[in-house]
Design a binder for these strands. Structure first.
Length: 305
RNA sequence: GGUACCAUAGCUCAGUAGGUAGAGCAAUGGACUGAAAAUCCAUGUGUCCCUGGUUCGAUCCCGGGUGGUACCA
């Protein structure tokens, strides 16, 4: 499996199609927002024209009303890969959601999915007693995890508490971070661009997306703005405009800023992964040639064993 | 042309009884196992507009200049 990762607006979509074309195979998206069919414009999901006839999986396959999470994604992708590897030697996975990429490449521990009723209780606790309420709750249930969590991060605190309650065992004993073995070999590619160029591309793409009707798309999902799928860069800002809190100009400026920050977080995540082979994303043709070379070298390497 | 006010970090601004300065945002670095495009942590040297003067010492007080804003002609 060839994994193509990189920050938003770095040209992953086009590169993945080029590579999939060359190997006559299909593309799996690892983008936690392109799943949702109601929001293709604002998530820069590939259009059918951009796909150039290459089958894409996990793009527009869900509704914003669906419940979904990384472990289900891991399962779904593995099931699909098992089928696809029967006839394809190579598969391409492309996306910018680091956690989702890792779930497929390295696996994720066996832990329960969140229970909606419990989440409600946790929210109630947080609203009534603030972060301190969550802290003391977690300290009681799992003192070991309490020592290592981000003590200010309410989501981590909540998840820790949730797992302890649902399983009756400390979270810290179940979050093992073991790496699972996969029945296929993985080659990871990272697309990199000089900072100024990436920033320029982010800005231009935001303007292009707005020109192509993004605001109308945001308006159409506005009534559901509290759904998690819409807690997303771009939509949050457009919703602030649609609510009358911000001018459109301000919203656009914030979209650009927040997209830049998102790209930075993606890079932080990816840089940590020593298995990534970095390639220059400035020239699309060159990038796809580099990927193909890397894949061929990888195959030859495999043949030795 | 006159009068008043303003000029401090990339931006918006605070401040110093005269002892060379700090917030928010941005930016940068980082964390990350079922909300992940989420969530969270860390990091503040900048000719305090220029130039004379007073002073042991001026970003701060005084004079002049330059630029900006408002009002009056």
């Amino acid at each position: 499996m060839v994994v193509i990762a990189g920050p938003t607006a770095s040209g992953k979509t086009a590169l993945a199609v080029q590579v999939a074309k060359y190997f006559r195979t299909e593309v799996i998206s690892a983008d936690s927002r392109q799943f949702y069919r109601e929001i293709p414009l604002g998530t820069a999901a590939p259009t059918s024209e951009e796909m150039q006839g290459i089958p894409h999986h996990f793009v527009g396959n869900l509704s914003i009303h669906d419940e979904y999470n990384v472990s289900r994604y891991e399962e779904d992708v593995l099931a699909l890969l098992q089928r696809k590897f029967q006839k394809n030697r190579v598969m391409v996975m492309v996306g910018g959601s680091g956690l989702y990429l890792d779930a497929v490449c390295k696996g994720i521990d066996q832990l329960p999915d969140p229970d909606p009723d419990l989440r409600k209780q946790l929210d109630k606790k947080y609203n009534a007693e603030g972060i301190q309420g969550l802290r003391s709750w977690l300290l009681e249930l799992d003192p070991d995890y309490y020592q290592e969590v981000d003590i200010n991060n309410r989501m981590r605190l909540m998840r820790g508490i949730e797992v302890c309650i649902q399983t009756g065992m400390p979270y810290s004993q179940q979050r093992l971070k073991t790496t699972k073995s996969r029945p296929f070999r993985i080659l990871k590619i990272g697309l990199e661009l000089p900072r100024e160029i990436l920033i320029e591309r982010i800005h231009q793409r935001a303007d292009r997306m707005l020109d192509s009707g993004w605001l109308d798309e945001a308006r159409s999902v506005f009534p559901h703005r509290h759904l998690n799928a819409l807690n997303t860069v771009g939509y949050k800002e457009l919703f602030a405009f649609l609510s009358g809190d911000w001018t459109l100009e301000l919203a656009v400026e914030k979209i650009k800023t927040n997209t830049r920050r998102y790209a930075k977080r993606q890079m932080t995540w990816l840089r940590r992964d020593r298995e990534v082979h970095w390639i220059d994303g400035r020239d699309g043709e060159g990038a796809s040639r580099s990927v193909i070379e890397l894949v061929d070298a990888f195959k030859q390497d495999l043949a030795k064993y």
